[in-house]
């Protein structure tokens, strides 16, 4: 309520920034489940975010499917690709998933750029609007309320999963796969499910994103943002929902402060920041907070 209510007191510009912040937080929450809780490194989150955004636009406005069916088709597409990458990669220990998803993320951009009519090439797709639902068209702050709902729903799903047997299985797989296997946890299956689920959540976030700017184009969904997402979770504190929220908020807002000082080289600052975080404060900002509270 508070998250959504805040939107009604903002101007257009701040509303836009606020919506994107909420979307980053959603993505960071999902990625934190995969990386922080299940211990897997992947770079495909933005590819799935983009897959969700592009698929809903294409299904709605080129195939003219009704909204619910377009949503289901989009999610199915994300799940299909996630399974195709995760099943081979999870068979082995090591960082095969990281490299495979890096390749997937790279390829996704190529497909968007070369997709011709269907994906609109380098210019992407624009000039479409959210279809009416029961004769209502959500606009302005009301659409921001939809995004707030997305954040809360994502958090609710992930927090529930985290507390269930599946969350414990994920943590066990992260901390000690051999012990987890000995306790009867199917390590490979746990990894595949965690990856597929968080990828689908990213896809849903992408569908919501598609109607924020009412345009989708390739640069947003590139590898750079996938790195940034990882950095957000590390700096905030991997494995903690609060960490994902703090990290996403901080690194999203940092460029607004930094740009007068360093111009367009904020990515360099992020890189240095994340290396320092790993060296000096592996538990992230949440770890600092914990230590202060304990004193």
């Amino acid at each position: 309520m508070v998250l959504a209510g805040a939107a009604f007191f903002m101007g257009d510009y701040h509303n836009d920034v606020y919506r994107k912040l909420l979307l980053w937080v959603t993505l960071a929450l999902g990625y934190n489940f995969l990386f922080g809780i299940c211990g897997q490194v992947a770079f495909s989150h933005f590819a799935f975010y983009g897959m969700g955004a592009y698929s809903i636009v294409i299904f709605l406005f080129q195939f003219h499917l009704p909204l619910p069916i377009a949503v289901i088709c989009g999610i199915a597409l994300c799940v299909l690709f996630a399974l195709a990458v995760a099943i081979p990669s999870a068979r082995l220990e090591g960082f095969y998933l990281a490299l495979a998803t890096l390749a997937l993320g790279q390829l996704f951009i190529v497909v968007l750029n070369e997709g011709g009519e269907i994906t609109g090439g380098t210019g992407g797709i624009a000039n479409y609007r959210l279809p009416e639902i029961f004769g209502l068209r959500l606009r302005g702050p009301w659409y921001t309320a939809v995004i707030a709902l997305l954040v809360v729903a994502t958090y609710a799903v992930l927090a529930r999963l985290d507390r269930s047997w599946f969350g414990r299985a994920c943590r066990a797989v992260r901390d000690n796969p051999e012990a987890a296997a000995a306790m009867g946890v199917d390590v490979a299956r746990t990894k595949v499910i965690a990856f597929t689920l968080t990828s689908a959540l990213a896809g849903v976030a992408g569908m919501v994103y598609a109607f924020v700017d009412n345009t989708v184009n390739p640069p947003i969904f590139g590898i750079d943002n996938a790195f940034l997402l990882l950095f957000m979770v590390i700096v905030g504190g991997a494995g903690r929902h609060a960490g994902a929220v703090i990290g996403a908020t901080l690194l999203f807002l940092l460029p607004f402060w930094l740009s007068p000082i360093v111009g367009h080289h904020q990515a360099l600052v992020f890189g240095v920041l994340v290396v320092l975080a790993i060296l000096l404060q592996p538990a992230g900002l949440v770890g600092i907070y914990d230590r202060l509270v304990r004193r």
Partner: peptide, 30 residues
């Protein structure tokens, strides 16, 4: 600078891998 402090601290193997990932961005942006 980046890997040895982590290995000496006995950090899990993931830590130096992530630190090197950070270095990817540092090299490229430099």
């Amino acid at each position: 600078i980046v890997v040895r402090p982590l290995v000496e601290k006995g950090a899990p193997l993931l830590a130096p891998i992530l630190a090197l990932l950070g270095m990817v961005v540092v090299y490229r942006e430099t």
